[in-house]
């Protein structure tokens, strides 16, 4: 053996193979071999660098080197291994301990992430939703409709002439909306539970409730609501909402899953607020499309808002304002959307 360079030698404890028995020893790196010596300077093991397992220390711990024969070496202190193993030690050590530069970069990246997610995530989720076959929208919508029909819907009490007129308007809207023929249908129901309302189910069923029809003062008001619901179907808002919500749950689980229960509460609240904002985004999209269809038909796009004001007449100012905890934008913002700033 060549005379060793004392600078390239590290002192520590040398454990017998697979045993808790140890003696003072040193470790050296010679070419691509790692050698260990006992206190008397006798070589006890020699192994190729690639076959030894080097465990870098987590703050304050010793370096540990495990040889393939079960022997192990533990350094007395946490320093010195860079010099001994050079590049090899640098590679295993890279992530343990950061320079101020890297700390800054890390904090900036953490701060930037919310913005990337805020703008990028809806686009990514919508691409996933687009890949889902429409037949799934259909089966979900049908089963939802069956459940609602059994539980909270009653037969409509509207005169058949009124229904026929609304069906004619609906056909007119479908033609103007570029929706595939047969993709949507209109049904009439009465519901004490929902009161004055209308909705679109993902299978293409538009449900018009008697109480809303009763409040309407013109055909344009009904047409505006129908166009809004048809837009929900055309833009597949239900499926997009499902995909976005599912993705957010998975993201929250991944990022904060190991955190405290308090962090999970905060995450759940945050996810809820984000989903409300997505819902408002879809409502605005449907209002815009409704206004477009109405203009194409030569009808008044603002009429729908007049009807909504009548529905919410007891609600006053709080329904005019958009709040982060509401599913729909405020009426004032919706009027601005449909009027297109005219």
């Amino acid at each position: 053996m060549e005379p060793s360079d004392p600078k390239k030698e590290i002192a520590g404890r040398l454990f017998d193979s697979g045993s808790s028995r140890f003696q003072p020893g040193t470790i050296r790196c010679l070419g691509d071999r790692v050698l260990a010596f006992d206190a008397d300077g006798n070589q006890t093991v020699s192994a190729p660098l690639g076959s030894v397992q080097i465990d870098p220390p987590v703050r304050g711990m010793p370096w540990r080197v495990r040889f393939p024969n079960g022997q192990a070496f533990e350094s007395n202190g946490p320093t010195g291994f860079d010099m001994l193993f050079g590049r090899e030690a640098g590679r295993v050590k890279r992530f343990h301990g950061l320079t101020p530069m890297r700390w800054t970069a890390l904090i900036l990246a953490s701060l930037a992430l919310p913005f990337v997610l805020w703008f990028g995530y809806p686009i990514a989720a919508d691409n996933v939703a687009r890949a889902v076959p429409v037949s799934l929208d259909r089966s979900i919508g049908q089963s939802t409709f069956r459940e609602l029909d059994g539980a909270v819907f009653d037969k409509s009490e509207l005169p058949s002439a009124r229904k026929a007129k609304m069906r004619a308007i609906f056909t007119e809207i479908l033609r103007a909306s570029d929706l595939a023929p047969g993709r949507a249908r209109l049904v009439f129901r009465k519901s004490d539970y929902f009161g004055a309302n209308a909705f679109a189910l993902p299978d293409g069923t538009v449900v018009m409730l008697d109480d809303l029809v009763a409040l309407a003062e013109s055909d344009d008001e009904i047409a505006g609501v129908l166009a809004h619901e048809v837009a929900h179907i055309r833009e597949r808002h239900s499926m997009r909402q499902v995909v976005r919500a599912a993705g957010i749950s998975v993201l929250a689980l991944l990022i904060l899953g190991d955190g405290s229960s308090f962090a999970e509460e905060i995450a759940a609240m945050g996810a809820g607020i984000v989903q409300f904002s997505y819902n408002r985004e879809f409502e605005t999209e449907a209002d815009l499309a409704s206004a477009q269809i109405m203009r194409k038909l030569g009808r008044d796009p603002n009429a729908m808002i007049a009807l909504l004001r009548r529905v919410y007449k007891d609600c006053g100012e709080s329904c005019e304002e958009t709040s982060i905890l509401s599913t729909h934008p405020g009426l004032r913002d919706r009027l601005e959307t449909v009027s297109g700033g005219e």
Binding site: P57, V58, R59, G60, M61, F95, H96, L106, I107, A109, S110, L113, L251, L254, I255, G257, D258
Partner: peptide
């Protein structure tokens, strides 16, 4: 922070490091 920027993936490494610190001391 590393777990946040890697969407949770780094937390596996973080878990090992934290556990090594607690056991090592």
């Amino acid at each position: 922070l590393l777990a946040v920027v890697t969407l949770g993936i780094y937390d596996a490494w973080g878990t090992v490091e934290r556990r090594r610190y607690l056991l090592g001391h």
